[in-house]
Design a binder for these strands. Structure first.
Lengths: 214, 214, 214, 214
DNA sequence: GATGAATGAGGGTTCATTCAT
DNA sequence: GATGAATGAACCCTCATTCAT
C-alpha cells in the first residue's frame, strides 16, 4: 500500500468518485495494454495516458509517478496468483497430498494463463528495484496457505511443512515463468501442467516417507 | 575471467593487443560491478566507462553499443551455467538417476553461487528483448546434456527423456533464481540444494516407474 | 512569415493552439537565424532552441528531428521561389518572349533577395541527402510554369519549350546563387539582374529563330 | 596555400620524401573515394585513413586536420576547372566569339565530367566556411582568362569584357552543377552542353551588338 | 616516422514530471 | 479537475584529435 498507490479498494463512492474510479481503471487497463503491446521499455507515461484517453496531467493526478503505475499492475497480478493458490489450498485442506499438489499446480497455471498477456512484462517489473515487498507478500501468502494445507493433509505428516511449502512456492513462481518463456519449447500448457504435477506429487511423497537426501 | 569477447582468443599478442585485452576485460568487469551495485536501470555507458577507468569512447571501441555490453555479460553467465550442467552430466553418463539428479543440482547451484554478484541483475537483462537467442542456447545445451545422461542412465528407462530433461531444465533455470531472490527467505544455499535434489530425485523416480499423473 | 508547418493552417484556434503556433514559429525563425549566424555546421538543436527561447524538448515536440527543421526552412524558401516564378509566368502568358525573360529573372531575383539572409545556408542544406524531393518540386514547378508561358508566347514558336524551360530553370537556380556567393564580386543585384536578363532574352531569341548550335 | 596544406608541388625529392609523397597521395585519393561513396557526412578521418591503408596518426602527420584534407581535394578540383577554362581561352585568343563560347563551355563540361565522381560532394565542401578563398581563386582565373579572350576576340568589341566574363563564369560555375544535380532531368551531358553553348553564344552576340537590356 | 588506443567534448534525442491555463 | 505544452536532466553515441609505444 505504501508502495505507490492502490486505489482499488474503496467500498462507497460519490458520483465524482465514480468518475475518478473510471479514470483510474482506464489508466490501469491502458498500462496493461501498453505493457503487452510495447513492452516495458516501450512504456512511457504519455503513451499510457493517450491509450487511456486522458492527458498526462490526469494520469499524474491518480498515480504519483510511473513506478506507482507499474506497481499497481504487478500488485494485482500477484494478488490474483496468491488468491488462486490460497483458494486451491482452502479447498483441499483435508485432501490427500497428491490431490493438493495437483490442485495447486492447476490453480497457479490457470491464473497465469489468464493473465498471459502481461506476465512476461511483469516479470521485468518485478525484478526492478523495490518490487521485493510485493513479491514477498505474494510468496508469503502462498507459503502460508500451502503450509497449512500440508499440515492438515489427511494422509501424511511432514517434518517441516513450512520448508516444503517454501520449496513448492519457489518452484511454482520460478519454474512456471521459465516454462512460459519457452524454455520448454514444445510445452503446451497441458504438458507443463502434467510434468509439474508429477514433480510436486513425487516431491511431496518423498517428504512423507521421510527421505531427506544427501 | 576469460575475456568475454569472442575474437580475442589469439594465443600470441602484441603489447598493443595486450593493452586492448586489458581494456576489454576492465570494461567487462566494470559492467558486472555497475550491474550489481546500481542495477540494470542505473547502468549507463558513462558509469560503466568511469568504473572501468576508461573513457566512453574507449568503451564504444570495444562494444558497439550498450546492449552488446549486457549481452556479453549475460552470455558468459549462461555459458558458464550450461558448461557446468554439461560437465555434471558427462561425469554421470552411466550413473544412477538419483546420482545424476544430485550432481546436476549441485553443479548448477555451485555455478550460480560463484556468480551470485551478477545473477540478479542478469535476470533483468535476460528478460529484455532479444536475449531469447542466448537463453535458448543455454537451455538447449542443458536439455541435450541431461537428456543424454538420462538415456544412458544405468538404472532406468524413460519413455521421453527429452521431456523430462526439459522439465528439469525449466525447474533449474526457473526455480533457482526464485530461491536466490529470497522467495525462500531463510533458505541458505545448503537447504535449497537439499530440497531441489529431493525434488529432482523423486521426479525422476516417478518417471522411471512410469507414473504419469493427471 | 506564415508558419512553416503544414498542419497548422486551421482558421479557428484555441488559446493553447495559439501558443503552439507561436512556439513553432519561434523555432522556425530561430532556425533561420542560427543558420545565418552560425552556418549549417554550427547549427545544433540546443542552439536553435535557446535562440527560440524554448527548451530542446519543446523543439522536439514540433519537429521530429533536426533534419525536419532544416527541411521546413528549405521548403519554405523553395516554395516562395517557385511561387514567384509561377506568378511571373502567369502574368506574362501572352506576352513577348523578351518580356517573359525579364519578368522571370526579376521575379526570381526579388524573391531571392527577400530571403537573402538564409539562402546561403540553405544551399548547404539542399545539397545534403534527401533534399532532392524538395528541389525537384521547386524546379518542376518552375519548368512547368516557364514551359507553359513559352508555349503561349505571342511572338514565337519553340521546337521544344520544355527543354528551353529546363535550361532557364537550371540557369536560374544555379547561376543566381553563384552570383550571390560573390563569384561575381562587385555585382550588385541590379547588374546581375541586367546581365541575366540579357542572357535569357538572347537565349530565347536564339531558340525562336531555330538556331541549335554545334 | 595558407589554407591547410598543398604539398603537391615539390619538384625534387629524396627517397624518404618519395615515400611521403606516396602516402600523401594515397590519403588524397582515399579522401576522394570516401567522399564519392559515403558523402561528406559519412566522411571521417578514421575512414579516410583506413581506405588509404594508413593509420589516423599518419594522416595527421600530413594533413593538420580534417578541413585541410577537404580543402586539398576541393583545391585540386577547382584548379583543374580553372586550368581547363584558361586553356580553352588561350587557344581561342583570336577566334570568333561564338567559337570561344563553344570552346569554354566544352572545356568546362569536360573537366567537370572527368571529376564527376566527386563534384557533388565538393559542392558541399565549397559551401562550408572559408572555402571562399579557393573559389575566388578559381573564378578570378576564369574571369581573367575569359576577359582576355573577349578583349582579343577577332570579331567584336565589348563595352565591358570583364563584366561579361564575370557573368559567363557565374553561369558556368553555377548552372552546370544545377544541371548535374538533375534539375534538368533528361539532360544527358550532350544536351546540356548544346543548350549552354547556345545560351553563351547568344549572350555574347547580344553584347557585341551593344544591347544592354532593361 | 608510424601506429591505433584512448580521449572527451559535444551532438541528437527521450521522457518523467510540472504547471499555467 | 483536466489539459497538454513546456521543461531539462540524462542518455546513448560519434569522431576529431592526441600521444605513448
Amino acid at each position: 500500500m505504501e508502495n505507490g498507490l492502490s486505489p482499488l479498494l474503496n467500498p462507497r463512492k460519490s458520483p465524482r468518485q465514480e468518475r475518478s474510479i473510471a479514470t483510474v481503471d482506464a489508466i490501469f487497463e491502458a498500462t496493461i495494454q501498453v505493457l503487452s503491446s510495447d513492452g516495458l521499455i516501450g512504456l512511457n507515461t504519455t503513451r499510457v495516458a493517450r491509450r487511456a484517453g486522458v492527458s498526462v496531467g490526469t494520469l499524474y493526478q491518480y498515480y504519483p509517478n510511473k513506478q506507482a503505475l507499474l506497481f499497481a499492475v504487478l500488485e494485482r497480478h500477484l494478488v490474483v496468483l496468491a488468491a488462486a493458490i490460497e483458494k486451491a489450498c482452502d479447498e483441499n485442506l483435508t485432501a490427500r497430498a497428491d490431490e493438493l499438489a495437483e490442485a495447486v499446480v492447476k490453480a497457479y497455471l490457470r491464473a497465469q494463463m489468464a493473465q498471459a498477456e502481461v506476465s512476461p512484462a511483469l516479470y521485468r517489473i518485478s525484478l526492478e528495484l523495490d518490487a521485493r515487498a510485493l513479491i514477498d507478500m505474494a510468496t508469503r501468502r502462498s507459503v502460508t496457505a500451502i503450509g497449512a494445507a500440508l499440515a492438515s493433509a489427511i494422509d501424511a505428516q511432514y517434518a517441516d511443512p513450512h520448508l516444503v511449502a517454501q520449496t513448492l512456492t519457489a518452484a511454482l513462481f520460478g519454474t512456471v515463468p521459465a516454462f512460459c518463456h519457452r524454455v520448454l519449447a514444445p510445452a503446451d500448457g497441458r504438458e507443463a501442467e502434467k510434468q509439474l504435477t508429477i514433480m510436486f506429487r513425487s516431491y511431496l511423497a518423498a517428504h512423507q516417507s521421510g527421505v531427506s537426501g544427501s
